[in-house]
């Protein structure tokens, strides 16, 4: 009875008409020990199928989180750093010296600073005063003319 059933299934199987369940029945039958002798040749086939289901992929999967390091971002970063650098430099060296709103105050400050300048200037000119001594020296040289006069008189004779 069972054998009949199996033979029918085998025929269907060879025509590719069996369902997965029926194929499972065949596999179970042929993996058992009491296989009819006339069907013995099917046994290795089904054993092979069952054995092959167990083969596994043992190598590990090399999953690299993609290190997609783009070098163009370095240049972008460099440009940004440069621009920040220029900006900060400009802020530090601005020529803004401040301004006065009140004209009177501005005049006072101006005259104060001019006074300071002239003070320093006078100090400078004071040292130039020593040049007068030089003039004195040269004026004493005028006595040499007297000597010259006397020599001229002598040579005339």
């Amino acid at each position: 009875m069972v054998l009949n059933n199996i033979e029918k299934l085998l025929e269907k199987y060879e025509n590719g008409e069996t369902s997965l369940k029926e194929e499972q029945v065949l596999k179970n039958y042929f993996s058992g020990s009491n296989v009819a002798p006339q069907l013995e040749m099917y046994k290795p086939m089904f054993t092979y199928f069952l054995a092959n289901q167990k083969e596994q992929f043992t190598k590990d999967v090399p999953l690299k989180t993609k290190q997609n390091f783009n070098y163009k971002w370095i240049s972008v970063a460099a440009v940004i750093v440069l621009m920040i650098g220029f900006y900060i430099g400009k802020v530090n060296h601005s020529n803004d010296l401040g301004t006065y709103d009140d004209p009177q105050l501005a005049f006072n400050e101006f005259s104060k600073s001019m006074e300071l300048i002239s003070n320093q200037f006078n100090k400078g000119t004071a040292t130039v005063g020593y040049l007068n001594e030089v003039n004195k020296g040269t004026s004493t040289l005028g006595y040499l003319n007297e000597i010259e006069n006397s020599t001229r008189i002598i040579f005339k004779n």
Partner: peptide, 17 residues
Amino acid sequence: VRVALSRARKTIREKLT
């Protein structure tokens, strides 16, 4: 698919026999 499967199975069975 069915036809190819059927052919393959028949070939295997014949050669095994």
